[in-house]
């Protein structure tokens, strides 16, 4: 049986994930599976099956998530951003750890999608 601290973190993580909307949830799941790689806005849009433009994704949801400390965005050039999950976030670090431990097959699918 896991200890109380871990259980509490997992409880909070489940609560956080279920409070987010579909787009944000998909972004977090995709990014935590491809961690430690970072992806560009276009790649992320493809990974989560986003139909709109990556620019509107960037200016809306991604900016908000960055403000809330869930993701990190490095601006390589004005048009190219490297997006990755914030692995120091108290809850998302657990998500990343779980994905690395148990999500090997899912990671492969995401990695293959990125290669294309």
């Amino acid at each position: 049986m896991a200890d109380d601290d871990t259980l509490r973190t997992v409880y909070e993580l489940v609560q956080l994930m279920s409070s987010l909307n579909e787009t944000r949830r998909a972004i977090l799941l995709a990014l935590s599976h491809v961690y430690p790689r970072s992806v560009s806005g276009v790649q992320l849009g493809r990974l989560i099956g986003y139909s709109g433009k990556s620019r509107s994704l960037y200016r809306g949801v991604l900016t908000h998530m960055k403000e809330d400390g869930m993701i990190l965005v490095d601006e390589l050039t004005p048009r190219l951003h490297a997006i990755r999950i914030n692995s120091e976030h108290p809850l998302l670090s657990v998500l990343v750890e779980m994905c690395r431990k148990f999500g090997e097959d899912t990671s492969k699918i995401y990695a293959k999608a990125l290669e294309e």
Partner: peptide, 28 residues
């Protein structure tokens, strides 16, 4: 704030929310 998916600024919790998250994130 981080543990509830928000950030804190000037000793206030702040966050942006989409219309489909209103209920759950208000709870958080």
């Amino acid at each position: 704030a981080l543990r509830h998916g928000m950030s804190s600024r000037n000793r206030r919790f702040t966050t942006w929310i989409g219309h489909d998250e209103l209920h759950h994130r208000a709870l958080l």
